[in-house]
Amino acid sequence: MSDAVTLSLAEPPVHALVADCIAADRLAGLDAKQIAQLPVVHGGRPGALGDFFKVRGGRSSVVRIEGDLPQVEAIGASMAGGELTIDGSVGRDVGIAMSGGRIDVRGHAGDNAGGARAGAARGMTGGEIIVRGNVGDEAGARMRRGILAVTGDGGRGTGIGMIAGTVVVLGQAGPGAGRFLKRGSIVALGPMDRPATFRYACTYRPPHVGLLLRYLRGHAGVPIADRYVVGRYARYAGDLAELGKGEILQWAGE
């Protein structure tokens, strides 16, 4: 057993590399050799994780991935616990259907971060994803529970079809954010285009937002200025074309 499992990108993939075998809780029970043998799909062909990554350590739920991985998809899929840090950008589907633990992306993330598997009704059902950069389209799609925090901008349809949970976007949330929201919160610290099916409720200081932002700042090291933590937020209830019990909370100043 080691303090952490480290995966260093040794052979950058030429095509999309589906590496949904990488999840902190799954690697916790495996040694380095077993981890290297985990299956991946490269350009539609089967392969092994060890073909692309050098593996150090084993039997730890703390996992670090070194390298820029925009071609690598589905890292942290269905992860249920542990800590997974990616020192660089990742491709689409990071943390899809995740249910626990924390994924920390020190770069950008592709489409459908924390979203649902194709055809599935639910995306993330727990845990936390921190993206210290931008995310692609439909981040947090159909989220049922959990937290997705994006320090950069969100793509189109951020939080689309959320059932519950929280998405925080420090930058600009893309068009269509929150569309088809049933419950759940989209906390927008920057500007965003709200769907027409959200209705303004009030401007206030939501106590849970302060608590959440303090948590992200204190426990995940997300740089959030005090003006957001103690600030006022305009509450828009929606999506009124759906259940309408969700909300967009848009920062409205100190």
Binding site: G126, G146, P206, P207, H208, L212
Partner: peptide, 22 residues
Amino acid sequence: QASKVIGGKRYWRLPVMEGEFL
């Protein structure tokens, strides 16, 4: 009412005339 899980703890948000009680 709505709930939020933050840091593994669940909180309840109760709408009140002033705003929200947590």
